[in-house]
């Protein structure tokens, strides 16, 4: 079934912009990105939209559809009624470059602030041995495609630009959790999670989990366990005492 859909797309750059209406053909089985490509081919050849794999794996085509952070390539047109107006805007947490393309370099800066995987000094590459049960938790976080929709929806930075200095965002707090839970990572990442990456600013309202296209349980499996590890260290004298006496790492 084909029909003519109404799309309201934000067009502009750092100097300003506006939502512009387009009437575009929509065919059965298409996703929003397909329609945007048709729009580029037929009416707006200069429409800027970032995309790559069209399979929900590269994380390039992040945008906001009817106000919700989503991947353009994973949002089926079948979720809309033919009479619906589909509004597409760039992610509203990051600086816009043009049209639907934003500057996500904030995320690269935050990524660089996290020390990389730190294996035991006595182990050479090729000598790593891990039990599957020990790496499972970290493996869930490796599914991340770095679309930054979680960063986009997180109100800590979305609604408070001033927090961008102190808050790494859910994607990178999850990266800290991934390394902290890794059986061969020997770096102590708990103090930095709270003091440098702003874990305490997270109020676990789960929007990051809600928008994750990979279905990663960011809040339950990464952020809350990290908050509990911080509580072990800073707010639980019994655990602190036990660790001090035994000097063990689980």
């Amino acid at each position: 079934m084909s029909y003519t859909g109404t799309f309201r797309i934000w067009r502009g750059d750092t100097d300003g912009g506006a939502l512009t209406d387009f009437e575009v053909e929509v065919n059965e089985g298409e996703v929003v990105l397909d329609v945007l490509h048709r729009l580029q081919a037929t009416q707006a050849p200069d429409l800027a939209v970032r995309w790559n794999c069209k399979a929900g794996k590269c994380g390039s085509c992040s945008a906001e559809i009817n106000g919700k952070p989503r991947l353009l390539c994973m949002t089926r047109m079948s979720v809309f009624e033919p009479g619906d107006v589909v509004t597409v805007t760039p992610m509203r947490t990051f600086p816009v470059i043009r049209d639907l393309v934003t500057d996500v370099s904030f995320n690269y800066a935050k990524a660089r602030e996290i020390p990389s995987f730190t294996p035991p000094a006595e182990l050479a590459p090729g000598e790593y041995r891990m039990a599957q049960v020990d790496v499972e938790r970290s493996q869930e976080f490796r599914k991340c495609i770095e679309c930054y929709l979680c960063q986009d929806t997180c109100h800590v930075v979305r609604d408070h630009e001033e927090n961008k200095d102190s808050f790494a965002g859910p994607r990178f707090l999850m990266r800290v959790a991934e390394l902290e839970m890794h059986p061969l990572d020997v770096a102590d990442r708990v103090p930095a999670a709270q003091e440098e990456h702003g874990l305490g600013q997270c109020n676990i309202t789960k929007c990051c989990t809600d928008v994750c296209p990979e279905g990663i349980k960011i809040t339950d499996n990464a952020l809350i366990p990290m908050k509990e590890r911080v509580a072990d260290r800073r707010y639980d004298p019994l655990v602190w005492l036990g660790r001090t006496i035994s000097r063990r790492r689980g």
Partner: peptide
């Protein structure tokens, strides 16, 4: 936090607070 503090009321819906410090 969502229903009483509106922080945020829903995902991608702006919260009304001028500043935010979370649970710090």
């Amino acid at each position: 936090y969502r229903s009483f503090a509106l922080s945020p009321a829903a995902c991608a819906v702006p919260e009304p607070h001028a500043t935010y410090t979370g649970e710090t």
